[in-house]
């Protein structure tokens, strides 16, 4: 049984929105990483959540950097720390916009170079900090301020892009499963070289659900199969328990869709396509796990 430490690295009363999935995620990320850690944060919700100068709500050093620059900055930081003989964890902690869109070049470059740091993308499936515009990670059919009729394109397959760089460890996670997230961060930080965790981060104002339902929304995403928890360790895929269960007996996807205002008015065809896409990903991962592909 994993013991999650009592130490808190995020102080109470941050500037996060009520029910923020990102804050919940970061709380467990930092509990797993411990005090000898530096966060590199590009423009994203976390830039705001940490508080206003000269205060900071985080109990580890936080280096804020420009939107596209997180992975490159973290790779330079890690190079300098390692050259100085320091083992300090370097964690780039970026939103989906800063990862799948503007930051993907720097992410790809740093991973190809084998830089020694953990990159975490907390994914609330839109540009949250600027008020919910579409990102490459916004799912098909979701309404944002720049897709008022629902997004016409499916979510970019970030994990496939990262997997193409063959990092020693990568995983998906969700703060609704804190122990799973905690263990994955621990595992990622035990590796040298670039590691990656993709966290689905439910967002009450963006997804339009009430603030007490963040954990429930994360669980629904996993139980309906719309988010699959898995790890890719040294290339080997392991689908984690909650998703394994969901593959055997998924909840109807409508429970996830109907719970969120952003999917209001979505057509049955679009939902069917989302279900097909999720099923295709599940089959692909199952085959990889069994070593068939």
């Amino acid at each position: 049984m994993t013991e999650i430490p009592r130490e808190e690295y995020i102080l109470k009363c941050t500037s996060a929105c009520a029910g923020c999935g990102d804050s919940l995620s970061l709380r467990y990320v930092l509990k797993a990483a411990g005090p000898d850690t530096v966060l590199v944060v590009p423009a994203c919700c976390t830039s705001v959540i940490q508080g206003i100068y000269p205060n900071t709500a985080f109990n580890v050093p936080v280096y804020n950097v420009a939107f596209a620059a997180a992975a490159a900055c973290a790779s330079g930081m890690s190079a300098a720390l390692r050259a100085a003989g320091k083992k300090t964890n370097v964690i780039a902690y970026a939103g989906d916009g800063g990862t799948v869109d503007i930051g993907i070049q720097a992410l790809s470059g740093a991973f190809e170079r084998g830089a020694d740091f953990l990159y975490i993308c907390y994914d609330n499936e839109a540009y949250g900090n600027t008020g919910m515009q579409r990102s490459g990670a916004t799912p098909l059919g979701a309404r944002t301020t720049t897709t008022p009729a629902g997004k016409m394109q499916p979510k970019k397959d970030l994990d496939a892009i990262v997997a193409a760089h063959r990092p020693p460890y990568m995983a998906t996670a969700c703060p609704a499963y804190p122990k799973d997230l905690f263990q994955k961060v621990k595992k990622a930080l035990s590796y040298r070289g670039p590691t990656f965790i993709h966290i689905l981060s439910p967002c009450p104002p963006g997804w339009r659900f009430s603030t007490e339902k963040t954990v429930e929304m994360g669980k629904l995403a996993v139980r309906t199969g719309m988010w699959i928890l898995y790890e890719r360790e040294q290339g080997k895929v392991t689908i984690n328990g909650p998703s394994k269960a969901a593959m055997v007996k998924p909840l109807p996807v409508g429970e996830y869709i109907r719970a969120q205002g952003r999917f209001k008015g979505i057509s049955a065809e679009t939902v069917a396509r989302m279900v097909d896409d999720a099923a295709a990903l599940a089959r692909r991962l199952q085959k990889e796990e069994e070593g068939i592909c």
Binding site: V40, Y63, V65, A66, A68, A69, A71, A72, C73, A74, S75, G76, M77, S78, A79, A80, L81, R82, A83, A84, Q105, A106, S108, G109, A110, E112, R113, A115
Partner: peptide, 27 residues
């Protein structure tokens, strides 16, 4: 005896220098 980081763009060159420099390293 330097860490030479062959970055993928100039934006990343300066970003990497920034990340390194803020640890107190000459860049």
């Amino acid at each position: 005896k330097s860490q030479y980081i062959p970055v993928e763009s100039e934006h990343s060159a300066m970003a990497a220098c920034i990340g390194a420099s803020v640890t107190g390293a000459r860049t």
